[in-house]
Nucleic acid binder design. Structure first.
Lengths: 340, 340
DNA sequence: CTGAAAGCGCTTACAG
DNA sequence: CTGAAAGCGCTTACAG
């Protein structure tokens, strides 16, 4: 490697002090416009870039955010939930729009992620995006809080949980799904997905679903809820489990699109017609949901908005500005898998 | 924020010099094992983490790799090609396995990415993962080369292109697809995807496809090739275009799964039966390919292997070890969309 | 508007 | 095996 130019080299060429170079390059109003232009000109010529390590060390912030994706240890190594990937994309873009770099890391629950990034000054704050068992990482969240690490969390609705949360309105999303199914004449709605505090997002969707049934005067059949994590395999297994029970159902609300895709496959394998015999609805509106056959009715979470809200909330936190948790609207997208 | 402990705090508590602390924490053999343990103990107690900015500045490397995803400017902002996301996942993991952090950035071709990361010392090297028009960024690659930036590139087969490339054997992949289709009795194979030096990966797949036809004594109908970029929309349009031509075909080889998903939708919309009337084959084996209906025959690129090879090649480059471009095997995965 | 100087928190010759 | 000292390349009071 050629040795890189430093601010001293520029100062020398420009005939000014190194401090002035530093100021000029950061557009400080303290420096004479002409001098500034001259300095910038030389910097460009020398292909000079500010050394981030040095500037970060001195200024004690990195202008970098860390995104920690943590996942259910049981899920397949090579697959990433498309919904989270979509979030990753929007977060990457939002970081850029806000002038931050993004460090991305996948973490397993067992690991010592809580602290790694901010304590080492590699990042000014952390965005947590996860699935899996909430109870498992509650403790780590508390630790982050205690270390006064700046972080924002996606997805769990406002619980006794520490920190700022940006979430989708899962309850209303679930409510709208069930309301739609009932309008389509479905009376026995099954639910595939965890329904406990361990997975509060799914639980909220289920609660909304139950509420809509009650509001319509339909008795909720709790036996029609089977657990699943958000993979096709788990959805496939869940649907088989439902069909094996001696209880009829005419609709399945799946807690995620991935689960729905697996469930549809299981229904087909058993010769069950979708939507004639059983309507299927997912959640997330992942790209593939439009292309399943029949196309999957689902609930859209606005990942673009979510990404920018996460980043903006974290940036506000970093700048000691007031921030509050936010709930984003969910939008039902009706397709063929649930319409008669 | 509480002010973080420094190596001096630890030195003070341990009754040694700061240099010794630094050595102990990096497991230098120069330090007495007992002293080392004591120091580590104290570091843990104080929740001490090495300041990366300081250590990077001093040691002149960051132990960080930058991943630059650059994309076709025409493609939808919110969508990311699932194949690249899969690569992102495997690269993230490979970085971790090699002790590197990963900076991720999405770049548009117009931007000034060529230099940003390594010149600022934020990363020791760059992994480039892109789609879109190769001729457009050839110039930037040359610039990287000239600046002696360490980088590796995914996906373009060994051209006159500068730098180390890790790629899939697209020619053989395409060859195997056509061979399979011919074995299934198909005689008129259409191709949806660009076929020019502007997208060498697709082009190689097409070349392999043509070669297999020639080897089987089938005349290649060049008019059955229509351009497409790797989106469902583009695949949909491409299939419509094919059907509008007054030329019959009984198979479509799509240059990517995304294209294939769109093409299948177009065929269905026109009442064409898959695979009875037209067989469809994709490329990439994205997660959804298994769940389309019929399930999509495709070619698997081993993203896990690819990710680790990219990272390992780049790390070797950084350490001035010999590295060479590599071609990974492609594996045909036969499903219902192409079998009689 | 500009410069000389201190210092961010480490790593690494150098000396012992 | 250990310590005192220099220095990585910046930013930022401080003084003018």
């Amino acid at each position: 490697m050629k040795s890189k130019a430093t601010s001293f080299d520029i100062a020398h060429q420009a005939g000014v002090s190194q401090s002035t170079v530093s100021r000029a390059l950061r557009d400080s109003p303290l420096v004479n416009p002409e001098t500034r232009e001259r300095i910038k000109q030389i910097a460009k010529q020398l292909n000079y870039k500010v050394d981030k390590n040095a500037s970060n060390l001195r200024s004690q912030h990195s202008d970098t955010l860390a995104l920690l994706l943590f996942e259910d240890p049981t899920s397949d190594e090579s697959q990433i939930n498309p919904f989270f990937l979509s979030m990753l994309g929007s977060i990457t873009r939002a970081c850029k729009d806000n002038g931050y770099d993004l460090l991305v890391s996948f973490q397993r629950l067992e690991e010592d992620w809580h602290a790694e990034y901010e304590d080492t000054h590699k990042a000014d704050g952390i965005i947590l995006l996860g699935y899996g068992d909430y109870t498992d990482y509650k403790g780590k969240l508390d630790q982050l809080q205690e270390n006064e690490t700046r972080f924002v969390l996606w997805g769990a609705s406002s619980d006794a949980q520490p920190g700022i949360t940006i979430a989708c309105d899962n309850f209303t999303g679930g409510y709208d799904v069930a309301k739609h199914l009932i309008q389509q004449g479905r009376k026995n709605i099954a639910f595939i997905g965890g329904a406990s505090d361990r997975c509060p997002e799914f639980f909220d969707r289920y609660k909304g679903c139950c509420q809509a049934q009650q509001d319509a005067g339909i008795e909720v059949k709790q036996s029609l809820q089977v657990d699943a994590i958000t993979t096709e395999q788990s959805g496939y297994a869940g649907a088989l489990q439902l069909m094996a029970m001696q209880q009829s159902f005419d609709a399945i609300f799946c807690a995620s699109d991935l689960i729905a895709v697996g469930a549809m496959k299981a229904l087909r394998d058993k010769g069950v017609k979708i939507p004639e015999q059983v309507a299927v609805v997912g959640y997330d509106n992942i790209p593939l949901s439009e292309f399943t056959r029949p196309a999957l009715t689902t609930v859209q979470q606005d990942t673009k908005l979510a990404g920018s809200m996460l980043v903006e909330a974290l940036v506000a936190l970093i700048n000691n500005k007031p921030v509050s948790s936010q709930l984003l609207p969910a939008k039902l997208i009706v397709r063929q898998s649930s319409t008669n």
